[in-house]
Amino acid sequence: MALVDVADLAIEFPLYHHNARSLKQRILASSPLRLKKDEDNRIVVAALRDLTFRIGNGERVALVGPNGAGKTTLLRTIAGVYEPVAGTLRVEGEIGSLIDPAAGMDPLLTGRENVVLRALYRGLTEADGRALADEVAGFAGLGEFFEVPIRGYSAGMSVRLSFAMATAMTPAILLMDEWFLAGDSDFMKKAETRLSKLVTDAEILIIATHDMTIVRKWCTRAIRLEGGRILADGTVDEVLGAETVT
């Protein structure tokens, strides 16, 4: 059973490598909306504030909201990259993250070698990685390019490889940023089949996107973030309004 349970969660980014004094004067005087001083007198950006939600099995959740709303930060926090300064976080189930397709990839290694490297990142052995590589090769459909260093890949090819890699491991919880839309239409059809399969296996999908067509097609629930807070949380129609799909 996969679960993401978040209560009163807050994330603050300290602005370390800037001229703190001038920054303080410039910003705190004008609009202390998201930039504030913490107890150590540092300037911090309140990236996420007072988030409380619970995502259970089988839910496909869209995170929507303007740029800088905190969507990607929330994905990374759920993935375990950032430690919250307040609140609690409970995640049950293995996480597959498609937040940055290039993370952990070595541009000088071939597609196959990168799959093995990714397996090592996940704590598997080289033998597991080689088995995984054969599986990824089949789904990514890169043909002979699978044996070529990935710095020669087009954006779409990189996406195919990352998508195949992240979903080949059957994560219980799939975290996704919207970059994966860069695949061509053939691949998107395949990707959709695979995604539906993942979700019907009663896992969780959390996707940050600006594309409402995607939200209406794939998601069962939407959370609207703005300024690091939750503005609305409910079914897709409740949050986006009952528009017709164009």
């Binding site: 430690e83 609690t88 976080l89 189930g93 293995e94």
Partner: peptide, 13 residues
């Protein structure tokens, strides 16, 4: 495809 065990990660600030 192989299913991993169900790890639980908890954090309380």
């Amino acid at each position: 495809m192989h299913h991993a065990a169900n790890p639980v990660r908890e954090f309380d600030a």
